[in-house]
Amino acid sequence: MNILIVYAHPEPQSLNGSLKDFAITHLRTAGHNVQVSDLYAMQWKAQLDARDNIAPSADIPFHPSLDSQRAFKNGTQSADIVAEQEKLRWADTVIFQFPLWWFSMPAIMKGWVDRVYAYGFAYGVGEHSDTHWGDRYGEGAMKGKRAMLMVSTGGWESHYSPRGINGAIDDVLFPIQHGVLHYPGFTVLPPLVLYRTGRTDAARFNQICDELATRLDTLESTTPIAFRHQNSGEYEIPSLTLKPEIAPGKTGFAAHLK
């Protein structure tokens, strides 16, 4: 299997750095092909701007989505964006590894999404009609590929429980798992979340490595998160709201799970 790890942590000697190295070795020993996008080591440019199109139109004001569309269509995207898109095309499974900072991914990884998910590549694709509102939420360029989040946090697991002060971890990660992953078509696996990482000693590290090894060994067989597909008949189009008979009485994130 071809596996891409998109990794964001500034310190190679951190817990995340050690787990990234463990994952690479474990996967390759198991016979998988592995590529890594180590965003801090790559000095990835996080901001989406006019420089992402190497042949911009001088007489047209910069428009983030339309410039992205023109660059993708005309083959004038900057080389770093093209390279990451090729990695995504190559991969069967993508692992996004990052520390949870302020309830989301680090800015450098968000910038990777902003720039690599070009208009025409990850969004803005497919027929838009009264019965099909684009190839997204279960369809699109990433359809047939699996993705998983590997997230570390200093908070306690109870802090991210359904009644915890930080909110349930599935709710915290919903915008990433449903929006960043499911939207362009990935089949999304349950996340591997590591809690209280500041208290990790040698015994806990070995335990985490065992947990990670199990998840890596079952990437192809793990039951994915049962997100609803937009064009499966469960949503009204073009309003894109659930039909009344689907999950009656449910609202919010949970309504979009089967």
Rank of each mutant, 00 (worst) to 15 (best):
L4W: 05
L4I: 10
I5D: 02
A8M: 14
H9W: 14
P10R: 06
Q13L: 13
L15R: 06
K20R: 15
I24L: 13
G31M: 14
V34L: 11
V36G: 05
W44H: 14
L48S: 11
D52C: 12
I54E: 03
I54Y: 06
S57G: 01
S57F: 15
A58N: 10
P61A: 04
F62N: 01
D67L: 12
S68Q: 11
F72C: 09
Q77C: 13
A79L: 13
A79K: 09
R89T: 06
W90Q: 06
A91P: 00
T93N: 13
L100Y: 11
W101K: 13
S104M: 07
I108S: 12
K110V: 10
W112T: 04
V113H: 09
R115L: 14
R115S: 09
Y117M: 12
A118D: 02
Y119S: 14
G120F: 08
V125T: 12
V125W: 05
E127F: 03
H128D: 12
S129P: 09
W133C: 08
G134R: 08
G134Q: 08
D135I: 03
E139W: 12
A141Q: 02
K143A: 13
G144V: 04
G144E: 01
K145H: 03
R146P: 03
A147L: 02
M148S: 03
V151Y: 05
G155K: 10
H159D: 15
Y160M: 14
P162R: 11
I165F: 15
A168S: 04
I169P: 00
D171P: 01
D171K: 12
Q177Y: 06
H178Y: 14
L181H: 02
P184N: 01
T187Y: 00
V188L: 07
L192G: 02
L194Y: 01
Y195E: 05
Y195C: 10
T197C: 13
D201C: 01
A202I: 13
A202H: 05
Q207S: 10
I208G: 02
I208N: 00
I208R: 05
C209L: 04
D210C: 10
D210N: 06
A213P: 00
R215S: 02
D217I: 00
D217T: 02
T218Q: 08
E220K: 12
T223E: 15
F227N: 00
R228V: 11
S232W: 05
I237V: 13
L240M: 15
T241G: 04
L242I: 03
L242F: 05
K243T: 00
P244W: 03
T251D: 02
A255F: 03
H256A: 00
L257Y: 09
